[in-house]
Design a protein around this nucleic acid. Structure first.
Lengths: 168, 168
DNA sequence: CTGTATTTTCAAAATATTTTGAAAGTTATC
DNA sequence: GATAACTTTCAAAATATTTTGAAAATACAG
């Protein structure tokens, strides 16, 4: 397979992949494009490569910056802004985990804390089922939260080798 | 907080949570409703509780069954079909992981295998950047794949206690 | 300052997804 | 095998999301 075709396939499937994870196609494609480009690109480069409008590129680049996956690069002597993606995939994964944990897991856990204190007689099977479900989710969620914290702080080698040890 | 309000909140936030994970709101809400109900429910029960149409309930229930999260229950002497969700959260998580791994991770890994064999001189920095990115993702993806396999087979206690050990 | 290059914004248009509801299909009962 | 109870389907409508593009804002160079 030629590089051009391989790049296209990578970008397109990274885009499709993203949509399964609540990320819009263009955002995922821009990320993919920046990942496989050794040098930073401008908004115009991205518009041209992906055939999307300026506004679209601008908004999604901003979002990628919010996620901490892309950074603005200013090249000396150049007026335009360039953009470049973090290339170390372990860092990328950690950054995504960190953000989603903050945006989704943590708020969910604090809600569950409140919900577990629901009023009512635990001998009522509706109350019992509710509390059991909520506390089951909360317990597992708390564990996940801790494990992810560990992962976020970890070096790739340390984490992977610990995971591998579990297979022994 | 009263049970009624707590149930509402749980259902609504489980729905919002789902939308961040590529699951539609109604599907997540039906799942939530079944999780907190001690007894199985009919399509009509669900329609009434969530205020959604029959067709919508029917389609999303089917999807939940495909995901292995809900099962049809036939009560003796009853004509209607009842539905009930798996209540063990560890099993629920494993089931979701198993399905998403099959639907998303595995196809991605086989694509990456192909893409890594792209033609071209590795001294060309575009070729090099492409291969480096693809092989980085592939390597980490393969590791995730193995770890998830382990998790899918594991008992909750075994898995959690191994995770806890990492903290020592 | 002034003019120009560049970036940002955002209302409207395009597209995609979800929901509805009525009709068709199925299954059980008598 | 006719009727009634229930389930499934799916085209059309409603809703939500994404994209566009042109105007406004900003930044820079002379």
């Amino acid at each position: 397979m030629k590089l051009t075709e391989a790049r296209q396939q990578f970008i397109s499937s990274w885009g499709a992949f993203g949509t399964h994870w609540g990320i819009n196609r263009t955002m995922a494609q821009i990320h993919a494009l920046l990942l496989i480009n050794p040098d930073p690109l401008t908004q115009d480069d991205i518009m041209e490569e992906l055939n999307v409008s300026r506004g679209n590129v601008n908004m999604n680049i901003r979002e990628l910056i919010n996620w901490g996956l892309v950074e603005r690069v200013l090249l000396p002597g150049e007026r335009k802004e360039y953009f470049s993606a973090e290339k170390d995939i372990w860092k990328v994964v950690k950054q995504i985990v960190k953000e989603r944990k903050k945006r989704e897991l943590e708020p969910m856990l604090s809600l569950l804390d409140k919900l577990e204190e629901v009023e009512g007689d635990k001998r009522d099977k509706n109350v019992k089922a509710f509390i059991d479900t909520v506390s089951g989710i909360r317990k597992l969620g708390k564990q996940a939260d801790k494990t992810l914290d560990l992962m976020i702080k970890a070096e790739e080698n340390w984490f992977v080798s610990n995971m591998v040890k579990l297979f022994k």
